[in-house]
Nucleic acid binder design. Structure first.
Lengths: 161, 161
DNA sequence: TGTAAAATCACCCGAAAGTATGACTCGAAA
DNA sequence: TTTCGAGTCATACTTTCGGGTGATTTTACA
């Protein structure tokens, strides 16, 4: 396991780690409070109150972290295209004729959406290298040299919508 | 105070009332649990655990109620009329709206044909750098990050055939 | 159940694309 | 005359693509 992998792991699981550490700390504080107040058992109400407060806070914090990771107002401008109504179906015979696999077609569709290889890999849960292999094969089969031409050609052949 | 006023009051302060009632109920349960378990003081941990759980839940619920209405997504839909016929004419209003110059459109068309920047430069008798400048401006104006997305978008907007 | 095709991933390398910034020319408009 | 947009070009840099090669694992099917 390299340091790259470790930092990747940290990045990906930062939140979970934070929660874990926070919970551990809380339990520690709990224990301390317990030992502190248990001897004076008429202070049990204060103790319980503190616990209640503490955990209400924890709940709020948790919910906040979990439900509002981005409190930004998104303005999505969506263009509605008239006269582009018909549904698309893949030209299956053409796909078979060119020997393009399902996975390759899938990659091709994402390429057509303008995604980078990296982004495609993340979308399909495969590595960058795999995406590159797929796209290279696609280019070969479509007899083109780059993704833009591939999209152009695939459109004309009815492989993508 | 009429019944109308009362129902108005209820509508306006429904949330606050709910909170109040809930809190009262909680305190009641608390009290009950206290009496229940205090005699068996080795069950204090269970008691405290229950309290903790309860109030964590309360916190989450509170936070949820308080923060969810703040998420706001505005979707601006805009109709774009694309020529449905076979012959293509540039959607001039759209070009002007986006502030895309004629030269830029020319470059965009060649990009759509799948030419490399180098090839576009040779076709238009300008340097590679000039083509890059143009295409960068195009990307900005179309709000995209690469040529594939640019072609995709330009096609939909009726800027290219 | 064995085999071929498909899918996955890695590493290297050079080319192409894209970003950022600045500068120069030219013609039209203020 | 000044100003401004469009077009041109450059330098420097980072990122992404695409080609080549080889390998392992999964899946499909005969």
């Amino acid at each position: 396991m390299t340091s790259r992998t470790i930092s990747d792991f940290y990045r990906k699981h930062r939140q979970e780690l934070l929660y874990g550490v926070s919970l551990a700390l809380l339990l520690f504080v709990l224990r301390w409070l317990e030992l502190r107040f248990l001897v004076l058992d008429h202070l049990i109400e204060i103790y319980v109150g503190a616990i209640a407060l503490l955990f209400t806070g924890l709940g709020i914090w948790l919910a906040h972290k979990l439900t509002t990771p981005k409190v930004e107002t998104r303005i999505v401008e969506r263009a509605v295209y008239v006269a582009a109504g018909d549904e698309f179906t893949v030209n299956e015979p053409e796909r078979l004729r060119l020997g393009i696999s399902h996975r390759e077609l899938e990659v091709l569709q994402l390429v057509a959406e303008g995604l980078s290889n990296q982004a495609i890999g993340e979308r399909l849960f495969v590595s960058l290298n795999t995406v590159k292999t797929h796209s290279s094969r696609i280019f070969e089969k479509l007899e083109v040299r780059n993704r833009t031409q591939a999209v152009e050609r695939a459109r004309r052949l009815g492989l993508i919508g």
